[in-house]
Each structure stands twice: as C-alpha cells, then as structure tokens.
Nucleic acid binder design. Structure first.
Length: 199
DNA sequence: ACGGAGATCTTCT
DNA sequence: GAAGATCTCCGTT
C-alpha cells in the first residue's frame, strides 16, 4: 500500500518518525529496486537554520513549499544527489531527508551501482543510497503518492518506540543550532547495521 | 580504526 | 566568492 498525501501532511519530525520501517521503491525498467528506510532527518520552517527553507523561497527549494509527498532532490558538494520527501501543508517549507535504507529488492542492480564496495556500504548514507537505487535530478518534484513517476514509498513493518533512537542531525555547520522542539530531528532504528552514523 | 584532504559544481551572498 | 543535509581514498596508528 502506497503512503498517501495525508501520511506526509504532518510535521516533518512526525513524518520522519513514521517513515522508519517503510519501503522506498524505485521502478527501473519494470523491475523493483527497494529498501527499508532505517534512518531519517527532518527539516522544517523558516526558523530552522539548517534547512534550505530558512531564507524563503528560492528556485532550488521550491518543492519544500508545495504539496506534501513530493520528492525534493538536490545536488550536494557538486557530486551527490540527496532524496527528501516534502511534508506539511502547502505554504510551509518542510521535508524529510532519507539518510539510509536496508536493501531489499533489486539487489543485482544495487550491487552493480555500488560495485567494488563492501555490501555494508551500499546504502548507509544519503548520497550512497541514491547512487545505489539510481535516484537523481530526474526525480525532483516527482509525486511519490502515486506509481506514475516510478518512485514511491510503501507501508512496511511497524517499528516500536523501544527500537528507535534519536539525536541531532548530521553534517551541519558547527554554528548551526538545533531548534528546540517537542520532537527530535534525526531518527534511526537502534543498532541497525545500515544506519550512516552509529552514535 | 581513525583522521585528513580532495573531488566537483550549484546555489545564494 | 564561499560554503555546502557527502563520499572516497590515502595516510598513519
């Protein structure tokens, strides 16, 4: 069952929690390439200095303001594509970064895309998983609540709170403070071998 | 295991 | 013109 727009309409921190255990699917030449989401990060609001949405609308971050459940894909460090899913109602800049997955289907394709690396390093990072699954700029603004764009997320297994860890987000400038909120910003499945950063 | 540096280029200041 | 929601390679321990 494909996650619908209502699933993504909550606050980004809530969506980040609920995405743990769901299945990210990319249809490649009719073949399913998929993985279980095991690590996420939320970005939300004009007050979130770590978010691309902090300074208002720009050509790049426009998807963050639009309808929930769309892909926001952008290039970082001139080299890597990072996949986000937009959240919250229209008009509020928010998205969840998919930071790590556990490969499930299409292992032959994933292995080829990550040839030469150890299996443990196929998808344990936001730049690595897009390479592994073949996700790039062509998926930007794709509607992930339908199969039409070839990229979506399906309901998966439920992860109990006892198996969930949280912490500050990764890779932000040292001067960027984590905004206070009742929910944390980074989520992962405790002790899962595919998360990008243990701790 | 851990640490540092280079790669590479778009975006916004 | 500088920084960036990262990864890989190469060095030393």
């Amino acid at each position: 069952m494909i996650l619908d727009r209502e699933f993504y309409s909550a606050h980004a921190t809530e969506v980040a929690r609920r995405l743990l255990g769901t299945t990210l699917v990319h249809l490649v030449d009719g073949q399913r390439v998929s993985g279980k989401i095991v690590e996420t990060e939320a970005y939300s609001g004009l007050n979130d200095l770590a978010s691309h949405g902090r300074a208002g609308k720009t050509p790049r971050n426009l998807p963050m303001w639009e309808a929930a459940g769309h892909a926001y894909v952008y290039l970082i460090y001139g080299m890597y594509w990072l996949l986000n899913v937009t959240c919250e109602p229209v008009g509020q800049p928010a998205a969840v970064l998919i930071r790590a997955i556990e490969p499930c289907e299409g292992l032959d394709i994933i292995a080829k895309n990550r040839s030469g690396r150890h299996q443990r390093e196929w998808t344990n990072g936001p730049g690595r998983l897009t390479l592994a699954m073949g996700i790039d700029a062509s998926h930007n603004r794709c509607d992930m609540t339908s199969t039409a764009g070839g990229l979506w997320i399906e309901q998966g297994i439920s992860i109990p709170d006892a198996q969930v860890s949280t912490g500050p987000r990764v890779g932000l400038g040292k001067h960027v403070k984590e905004p206070w909120l009742s929910m944390p910003w980074r989520w992962w499945i405790t002790d899962h071998p595919c998360v990008s950063v243990a701790r």
